[in-house]
Nucleic acid binder design. Structure first.
Lengths: 110, 110
DNA sequence: GCATTAAGACCACTTTAATGATCATTAGAT
DNA sequence: ATCTAATGATCATTAAAGTGGTCTTAATGC
C-alpha cells in the first residue's frame, strides 16, 4: 500500500469543476459519452474519468476534451494565446535565469 | 511504433501557456525547481515536464503546482469554486440524463 | 408497457507517466 | 577567477493511466 497523493482543496475543486463543465458542455451539444470520446480520440472510460474529475488524467487530454465542448480555460483565440505565452516568456526573461538560494529561506512576497 | 496522439492547437498552446505561467510564478517567488517540487510533493523531473508544457502530466499535479505559485485557472476562492460546481450541476440536472441519438447526427449548435 | 441503448462500473492488458538517480553545463555570488 | 548549486538532460525502475472489453441498470422514445 502506497500512501496516496494528497492535493490542496483548490486543486481538487478546480479539477472537479472542470469535469462538470465538460459534462455540461457535452450535454448541451447533445453528444453522448461515446460520441465525444470518439471525437477526442480517447476511450469512453477515460472520458468518464475526466468528467468525474479524476486527478490523474493527462492534462493534454483534459484540455483537448474541454476545448471540444467549448470550455476554454484561457482565451479561445489561439493567436492571442500564443501572444500571451510570448508575453509570459518575456517577463521570465527579465528575471534571473537561476535562483540562488543563499542556503534557504525565500519568501519575497513581492 | 505507435502513432503518437494528436492535439488541437488550442490544447497544446493552453498547456504550454500554463507551464510558462507556472515557471514565471515560481521565479517571481524566487523558488528553485527543487524547492517547488518539494512543496508540491513531486519529483523535480515531473516539475520540469509541467513547466515545459508536457501534455501527459497528470492534471491534478499541474493544478496543484499552479495553485502553489499563484496561478489559478478558476476563482482562487474555494467556496466560490464549490458554488460554481454546484451551479454547473444544477444546469446539468435541467438537461436529459441520457442523450438518445436517433441513430446519428447531432449538432444543435444552440 | 416494451425495446433500445446511454451511462455507470469493472477488469486484464498495454502503454506511459512519475520517480530518484546521475552527469554536464554554467549563472550568479563572493 | 573561483566555487557553488540551479538547471537541463537522460535512464532504469516502478507505479499508474489509458484501453477495449464486458455486464448491469434504467432513462428515453416508441
Amino acid at each position: 500500500m502506497t500512501m496516496p497523493r494528497t492535493y490542496t482543496r483548490y486543486a481538487r475543486e478546480a479539477v472537479t469543476l472542470l469535469g462538470e463543465q465538460i459534462r455540461l458542455g457535452r450535454k448541451q451539444r447533445r453528444w453522448t459519452e461515446k460520441n465525444l470520446a470518439e471525437r477526442a480520440g480517447i476511450s469512453r472510460a477515460t472520458l468518464q474519468k475526466i468528467e468525474n474529475g479524476d486527478m490523474g488524467c493527462a492534462v493534454g487530454l483534459v484540455f483537448e476534451v474541454a476545448a471540444l465542448v467549448g470550455v476554454t480555460l484561457f482565451d479561445h483565440d489561439t493567436p492571442a494565446l500564443a501572444r500571451h505565452t510570448d508575453h509570459t516568456r518575456d517577463k521570465i526573461a527579465l528575471l534571473p535565469q537561476r535562483i540562488k538560494t543563499g542556503g534557504e529561506a525565500v519568501f519575497d512576497d513581492f
